Computed example of a mutant assay.
Amino acid sequence: MSPLACSLLALTTLFAVSDAEKVGVPNPFCDGRMKGTEGDSVINFEMTVSGGVVTIPDKCSRVGKELVGENVNTCNTSNSKPLFRSILGLENNFGIIGIDCPTNTIGCMALKLKVMQHCKSILPPVRG
């Protein structure tokens, strides 16, 4: 395929993905996982990661709360879909996730991982 044809195909794919997201169709180049339950507050942050085993810091415990749930997702738009997988023996642990994304695929070395940690208060309410 000629370089011009490759460029046109890539551009068409980007427009198709962009239009699909506008009408609520899931991006075919994204994956995500939810572990645990919802809490009484959430902390959102992003990390730049590559494929493989990723360790996510627990940001709930820093503010007097405990981590009760974790929602993570990432995309590699128009290149290759990264796939989340469980790490054997650590399926229910928060903060550890496996991401299958070939290192020789464009974008896999710098995936933007979006993390939403669900926190629950561990301190008793103040009575006044």
Rank of each mutant, 00 (worst) to 15 (best):
S2N: 13
S2W: 06
S2I: 02
A5D: 11
C6A: 14
L8H: 09
L8K: 09
L14Y: 11
L14R: 11
A20C: 14
K22W: 04
N27E: 10
P28N: 02
F29Y: 15
R33S: 08
M34K: 08
T37D: 10
G39R: 03
G39D: 03
D40F: 02
D40K: 06
V42M: 15
I43F: 06
I43D: 08
T48W: 00
S50M: 06
S50T: 05
G52V: 01
T55N: 11
I56A: 04
I56T: 05
I56V: 14
K59I: 02
K59S: 04
S61E: 15
R62K: 13
V63W: 08
V63S: 12
G64W: 06
K65F: 03
E70C: 14
E70G: 10
V72K: 03
T74W: 03
C75A: 09
T77L: 11
N79F: 11
K81P: 01
F84P: 00
F84M: 00
R85E: 11
R85C: 03
N93E: 10
F94M: 01
F94P: 00
G95T: 01
I96M: 01
I97W: 05
G98H: 08
T103A: 12
M109A: 05
L111V: 02
K114S: 12
Q117C: 07
H118M: 09
K120N: 12
P125N: 10
